[in-house]
Amino acid sequence: MQTSTQTRLALCQIDDLPVGLGRSFEVGETPIAVFRTRAGKVFATDAFCPHKGGPLADGMLAGDQVVCPYHAFRFDSQTGECDQANVCAIATYPIDVAADGGVFITV
C-alpha cells in the first residue's frame, strides 16, 4: 500500500535568498527553484523550464512571473502556468517564512 506524505522542511534563512532573484535547491532528489520578489513574496517552482530545460533560478523576475533565461518563456508564480499556449505548466510548491526568517517548503 502506498501513501503519499507531505513533508514540511526547513530550506534556508530568508537572507539566503537574494532579493529579486532565485536560487536552486535540491530537496531530497527534487530540483526546486525558490524566488524572493522585491515586494517580499517568496515562492517555489520546478527548477527547470519544460521547454528546453532552462535553469529557472538563473532567470529574472517580471512582477510575479519567472522568466526562463534560455528563451524568455514566462511562468506564473502561483499556478505555474506558462504564457505560451503549447508549453505545459510547471509545478509550484507551498512555502512559508517563519517569524525568525526561517524558510520552509512543503514537498
Binding site: 513533508t7 534556508c12 537572507d15 537574494p18 536560487r23 536552486s24 535540491e26
Partner: peptide
C-alpha cells in the same frame, strides 16, 4: 555580492522518516 551568486544548487536532504 549576493547569496548563491556562484553556486549551482544548494542541497537540502529529506529528513529520515
Amino acid at each position: 555580492v549576493y547569496a548563491g551568486q556562484f553556486e549551482d544548487v544548494k542541497t537540502v536532504p529529506l529528513p529520515m522518516v
